[in-house]
């Protein structure tokens, strides 16, 4: 493994499988009466969150605690940003206290790269702007593999706001690297330019995109996108792109439905689908802890030289 986990784009196939296999072992720890191993004793991990996030931060924190690391949560509610402190200054101040790892969530794409350049600490990307959210894609892959026993050759449909989604970018990188057949669908106003060059297909018709799918992955729609004229209304979005039971029927009978959360019921996904038998949304959350434990463990070792 490299020093940092900044993007799925930086990982080889083998590294992805190593993380997934290690996560299998880590998951068992969560089933024990004492859900804790001494592995990262004496390691300090700072969870540095510049964006509010309950799910990802909690998941990382549980993973860190299960590995016995000392964890510290810093939620920068843009307060020091308002005071004029730059990300670099914030990072250098934290770095001066010599943590072993920094888990960073930030609204700017590439913020983790900036941190990785100036910090000796290992940097784990917990979501940077519209760029990547690598641990989300890894836990998605873990969940898919658990259900389908493989990833190669699976038909995966990803539906929603493709343009602003870091989950999309990480999943495209990961799924294409592992040989899945990935089909994207979303309003043409929210399709990243040239994304086909990643080896995916883009269809505007969600009905076509989900045909024969083994996996349907929904992306969150943010309400403020209406202001940018990306789509006219939430109601219309649901009509055109919302995942309804009727649309799910076009997929394979054993399709699984995924969502990175938090869900907008009745916008991108119908409640009966979210709560229905195909939904693995809560499993994704559970698997997130194991996958993050695996990442923390694997990064805690000596870095591979470039």
């Amino acid at each position: 493994m490299k020093k940092d986990l900044l993007a799925i784009a930086d990982l080889t196939r083998e590294e992805i499988y190593l993380i997934l296999d290690t996560a299998e072992a880590m998951r068992e720890i969560g089933l024990r009466p004492i859900k804790k191993v001494p592995t990262l004793r004496g390691k300090t991990i700072v969870n540095l969150f510049f964006e509010p996030s309950t799910r990802t931060r909690t998941s990382f924190e549980i993973a860190e605690k299960r590995l016995s690391a000392d964890t510290l949560n810093i939620a920068v509610a843009t307060s020091s940003v308002l005071k004029g402190e730059t990300l670099v200054d914030t990072a250098m101040n934290i770095e001066a206290m010599a943590p072993d790892m920094i888990v960073l969530r930030h609204a700017s794409s590439g913020a983790c790269h900036l941190l990785a350049r100036i910090c000796k600490s290992r940097i784990i990307n917990a979501g940077d702007g519209m760029h990547e959210h690598p641990t989300q894609a890894l836990l998605d892959a873990f969940t898919i593999r658990e259900h389908k026993k493989r990833i190669e050759g699976l038909k995966v449909a990803i539906v929603g706001d493709l343009l602003h989604s870091r989950v999309l970018r990480s999943n495209v990188q990961l799924l294409t690297r592992l040989g899945a057949d990935v089909c994207l669908s979303g309003p043409p106003t929210m399709v990243p330019a040239g994304i086909e060059r990643c080896g995916v297909r883009v269809l505007t018709s969600v009905d076509e995109a989900v045909v024969g799918a083994d996996v349907i992955m929904m992306l969150r729609i943010q309400q403020e996108r209406m202001q940018g004229a990306f789509f006219p209304s939430l109601r219309e979005y649901f009509t055109v792109f919302g995942m309804t039971a009727e649309r799910v029927r076009r997929a394979k009978p054993d399709v699984i439905i995924m969502h990175p959360g938090p869900m907008n019921r009745g916008v991108e996904i119908a409640s009966d689908v979210a709560d229905g038998p195909y939904s693995v949304i809560l499993e994704q959350v559970a698997n997130g802890v194991a996958v993050r434990m695996a990442v923390l463990y694997l990064l805690a070792g000596a870095p591979e030289m470039d």
Binding site: L18, D21, T39, L40, A294, A300, G301, A302
Partner: peptide, 25 residues
């Protein structure tokens, strides 16, 4: 029993990848 996560020599090496962790059952 996989004892990797309990080893006392973890994190002590300057080079090399982390030992493989496998499942305890």
């Amino acid at each position: 029993l996989d004892i990797t996560l309990y080893r006392d020599d973890l994190m002590r090496h300057a080079v090399g990848p982390q030992p493989l962790v496998r499942r305890t059952e």
